[in-house]
Design a protein around this nucleic acid. Sequence first.
RNA 1: CGGGGCAUGGCGCAGUCUGGUAGCGCAUCUGCUUUGGGAGCAGAGGGUCGCAGGUUCGAAUCCUGCUGCCCCGACCA
Length: 570
Amino acid sequence: MRWTRYPINTMKETPAEAEIASHRLMLRAGLIRRLAAGIYTWTTFGLLTLRKVEAIIREEMNRAGAFEVLMPAVQPAELWQESGRWDEYGPELLRFTDRGDRAFVIGPTHEEVITDLVRRELQSYRQLPVNFYQIQTKFRDEIRPRFGVMRGREFIMKDAYSFHIDEASLAQGYELMREAYTRMFTRMGLTFRSVRADSGAIGGSTSEEFQVLADSGEDAIVFSDGDGYAANLEMAEALAPAAPRGAAGAAMQSVATPNVRTITAITEFLKVPATQCAKTLLVEGAAGGVVALVLRGDHELNAVKAQKVPGVATPLRMASAEAVLAASGAEPGFVGPVGLRCPVIADRSAATLADFVCGANVPDTHLTGVNWGRDLPEPAVADLRNIVAGDPSPSGKGTLSIARGIEVGHIFQLGRKYSDAMGCTVLDEESRSTTLCMGCYGIGVTRVVAAAIEQNHDERGIIWPEPIAPFQVVLVPINIAKSQRVRETADRLYDEFTRAGLEVLLDDRDARPGAKFADAELLGIPHRIVVGERGLEAGKLEYRHRRATASEDFPLDDALRFIRARLATG
RNA sequence: CGGGGCAUGGCGCAGUCUGGUAGCGCAUCUGCUUUGGGAGCAGAGGGUCGCAGGUUCGAAUCCUGCUGCCCCGACCA
């Protein structure tokens, strides 16, 4: 492609709205343009990469035996009422009515539509298992869209749904998708991890996220250095401390702590480590009232874990200031588990504390030397806290570290939630009607592009992984207006490369070299060839990879062979 | 949803407090010069100052309402 004939528009300055690197660079390089909050146009140039990502996904889905379909964005409300999600889904589901006052939604996902299709089309177990996928536009009315296409409201998703006669077949289909996802993200040149996203509770329901590792990621993920254990922080189990609780050594005492409300303040005021303090959080109970959750001072509450504890309201809500005062007799900051008039649940680590410090439920007062079983009843114990780096792995091998990730894929064994609700059945070998077992498998296609940039950029611009680069090679002729030789050589190379099937961008603008180099680096095209008088005098061209810090010369006569060798290794 | 902020040419901003008919940089167009790391000079085009009311001789500026957008939001007990 010739730059002067291509609709591409770079920006030297960054629009004020862009917070993270990928968003900034996507705007500056002209991949996307904003239309409304969380809604973006993909430009001709941006679409080159988006299509490459889609092509890799398509190839691997097909290779895994899935079949492509294309379902509507607009879906009738009846299907959502049938599955029960009309009431469950909440304000993220965009609802509207047509001219005849019939209710519709814009699909945030397509379980209902595919289940409806399958229940009509499939009659026999002989037609199973089967996996349908699509690459299609979704809409979720996010509370707070941000970071460009990273968390947009409208976005492109690859969603797939598999149907099986039983759980064993589902497990096989799930495994196939797991392998396909691993191949896709590997082919795209991304550094990623698959991560456990569910503790694997009842029903053997299993779920894994595919996380692209990047410091700006919205998710925290946890790894063991001892084996392959990896999980979302929300799900990673914190084991009970190996050492048993120490013996009580001190008497419980009341200490005046005027206006000392936080753990940090307590550690400074009483000169005790945070690991010797207990913090008590009052949350709303499932049946009204409040429940006390007790954590060690240096630990953070994990909301996902907490709301799974029986008696705790879902979703987790902190108790109001009035409720705290009613239950404890003191304001937040001086609440403790001793003498509290509500159920007390201690985190595993908090439950092994001895001689600990906590709020006294009396204004401006804390207690020291507190011991479970002596000064207050033994608490109920649960895993309530977030993992911290250095914790032992729940797999039993190694210790855990924490990294940030961007969730680009999620695979899930659904079971019969939708097929049950919607009557999706086939006849089995014995002519009995059997409800199908389902899996679903998503990839945020537009998010993958942002994640790739987040993981591959420097201060000058994007550094595309080769398999998803919009162009493979950029040709930069120097002083094209004056030098006929440079112009003709660049034209000839462009034709030669293009005929050879390479994806080449020829920067044929009459611009100064600095401007061309800066744009080439912003766009992130992996291989750059400079054509200049200086080199041509010696029969040379100049090559530089986007990641390299220095250029190398190579013979003009050998150009195609040279660049092909670089593409193969690059 | 709660809190805060912003809305002026394609992008980034000043002007608003103290009302007098809109300006700077980048980008765009023309000409000349320049050409190995975002050139220089000269000229040009482009804005009903988010929308609707109001106050005033006069409103980007003051008042009211609306809309859009951005940022933050249990982690404290």
